[in-house]
Amino acid sequence: MSHFTKTFSRIFLILMAVVLLPAPLLAMEPAEIIKKSQAAFYEAGQDFQARVKMTLTTREGQQRLREFTMLRKNDMAGEQKYFIYFHSPGDVAGTTFMVYKYPNRDSDRWLFIPAINLVNRIAARDSRSSFVGSDFTYEDVSGRPLEADTHKLIKEEAVNGRLAYVVESVPKSAAEYTRKLAWIDQVTFLPLKEEYYDIQGVLYKVFTAGEVKEIQSLSTIMKRTMENVKSGHKTDVVFERVQYNVGIGDDLFSERYLRRPPEKWIK
C-alpha cells in the first residue's frame, strides 16, 4: 500500500464517521443539553409570576387542592429567590414561603405562619424532600446542580411528535434517585418526560409535561404531572396568568413583605 492510499483511506474513514454520525450527537455534549434545559425550565426570563393550582390525588382518589401565587427572580451568579403566597386551603390562606436558592450550598427557607404571626426559618430535610406535600421535591421545583450528576446522551426519540434528546443522569453521591432519564425537546429544551429510578433500580416517579405555551416568546409548560407509580399518588400542576419580566424588586424578598405581601404581586 502506498503512502498516498494510506493517507487517503484515513481521511476517508474520518469523513465517513463525521457524515454517518447523527449531527446533534456531535454538536452537543449531554451536560450542555441539561444546562440549556435547566435554563429554559427553571431560569426563563429575568423574573416570573404565575398563579399555580396544585392538585394532590391519592391512589384512592382523595384530593387536596393548593392554590398559590409564585414569584421568582433570577439574581447574580445563578442565585434565585422564590416567593410563594398561599390562597387555599382556606385555613392556611396568607401563609407565605420564601426561598433563597444558591448554586452550591443549601437554600435558606422562611415561612410566615399568620395564625401566630411568626416568621420561622425552616431547615428542611434536604432538597430531596417533598415540596408542600406534593410528589415534586424542592429539587424538582427549582433545579439541581448540573455537576451533581454524570450525564449521558442515550438516544434521540420523538415524544408526541416532538424530537427529543434522551439524557441519562446518574448522581455522583446519594440522591433521591439513582438514575433519571429525561426526554428533552430539541427545539425548546423543555423536558417532555422524565423517569426516576430508585435505589432498587425500579421506576418510581414519572414527570409528564402537558400543554406548552409561548409566553412573551418564552416556551412555558402550563400543565405538568408528577406521578409516583409505586404509591399511586399523583400531583397535577396548572400554571395560570404566567408573566415574565414583570420587574419584581429585590425588596419583596424580605421578612417585612413575608408578613404583609404587596397586593399587586399576589393577586
Binding site: 385555613d91 392556611v92 415561612l111 405562619i113 395564625a115 430535610r125 424532600s129 408542600v132 406535600g133 399518588h233
Partner: peptide
C-alpha cells in the same frame, strides 16, 4: 387556624406518609 397552619407546615417539610398515616385528606 393555628392547628391547620402547623399541620400545613409539617406537610411542607416532612415526608407525605407521616401525615397520611394519621389523618385522611
Amino acid at each position: 387556624a393555628e392547628i391547620a397552619q402547623y399541620l400545613f407546615l409539617f406537610g411542607m417539610a416532612a415526608k407525605p406518609s407521616d401525615l397520611d398515616n394519621v389523618v385522611d385528606y
